[in-house]
């Protein structure tokens, strides 16, 4: 029986194994191409930026261009750091999170509870469109709303508003998707105990989906932490540490832009970028870790 088959059907196994190998090699090559940019970027940042990283870099404010020029002429490390940017980023991202998280969560819960309703469909679409709005446009909107009418000048609040609008659609979507993944049986179990609906949301859905919600929030933060364009139009920048939300404020990406425009500060670009990259990477890894543990 086997012999008969062998004689009728040609043995292709040789060429098939070869094809298999070619595909495997192709896959490896393309995978390497895919991950190489991130490795090259991180490598470059470390090589060029590590020299400036020190305690001073984290706790001192930016030097002026003259100080930088002198130290370069003497072959020394540029003095000062980016503490004004670090604190500004912290302030604005925190404030944006405080604005965006409650609104995003509530909207997400609404969408989950009213899947089929027309209004929910409209909100879902608008939220998706919002995600596609260029960040500089959001900066312009925040400029018109907040800079011109609320704080009467460039301010951290205006920057936070722009960042919060960017965070919203991500939080809305991740909230809805997280809740959709919670088995209906759990919700019904609580309702069958005579638990009022708002308590089911607060005490069952949110705790059960907590890690999913947290992942969405962390990802949205890591998304906006590196935003520059909207902040140029709203927070402007500052050479001192500022905790007043109605005053102009700096941020790490804003400083990178400023350093880029100053030939004496070039070294600081790399170290600031390294720090920013590290923060974004950390947020991403933490949220991945949380998401993995959930499964």
């Amino acid at each position: 029986m086997v012999k008969e088959k062998d004689s009728v059907i040609k043995d292709h196994s040789g060429s098939r194994l070869l094809k298999d190998k070619i595909f495997l090699i192709g896959i490896i090559i393309f995978s390497v191409i895919t991950i190489s940019p991130i490795l090259l970027i991180i490598g470059k940042l470390i090589v060029k930026g590590y020299r400036q990283i020190s305690l001073d870099f984290l706790i001192e404010t930016t030097p002026n261009t003259f100080e930088a020029m002198t130290s370069i002429a003497n072959g020394e490390r540029i003095p000062g750091g980016i503490a004004n940017g670090i604190t500004g980023t912290l302030l604005m991202v925190l404030l944006a999170a405080v604005i965006a998280i409650p609104i995003g969560l509530i909207t997400g819960i609404y969408l989950y509870e009213n899947q089929e309703k027309r209004l929910a469909g409209v909100i879902r679409n608008i939220s998706d469109i919002l995600q596609g709005v260029p960040s500089i446009v959001l900066g312009l909107i925040a400029y018109l709303w907040v800079v011109k009418h609320v704080t009467q000048g460039f301010s951290a609040l205006a920057g936070s508003t722009a960042l919060a609008i960017m965070m919203l659609p991500m939080i809305v979507r991740s909230t809805e998707e997280t809740f959709k993944m919670i088995p209906n049986a759990i919700k019904e179990a609580a309702l069958a105990l005579g638990v009022p609906y708002y308590r089911v949301i607060l005490q069952i859905l949110i705790p059960t989906g907590f890690s999913g919600l947290l992942t969405g929030i962390l990802l949205s933060i890591s998304r906006v932490i590196g935003e520059t364009a909207p902040l140029m139009l709203t927070a402007l920048g500052s050479s001192v540490i500022n905790w007043d939300v109605t005053k102009p404020t700096s941020s790490i990406p804003l400083l990178i832009w400023e350093f880029y425009n100053d030939p004496n500060m070039v070294d600081l670009i790399w170290s600031s970028s390294l720090l920013l990259m590290g923060i974004v990477l950390a947020f991403n890894l933490i949220s991945k870790q949380i998401a993995a543990r959930r499964r």
Partner: peptide, 28 residues
């Protein structure tokens, strides 16, 4: 009227103890 479902559905975030008194806990 208590209800028991087809598949066991204890609350995943709660301990055994809290699951038993979930009716009280969740109702405040």
């Amino acid at each position: 009227m208590g209800m028991v479902f087809q598949r066991p559905n204890p609350f995943p975030t709660m301990s055994i103890y809290d699951n038993v008194i979930a009716g009280y806990k969740l109702n405040g």
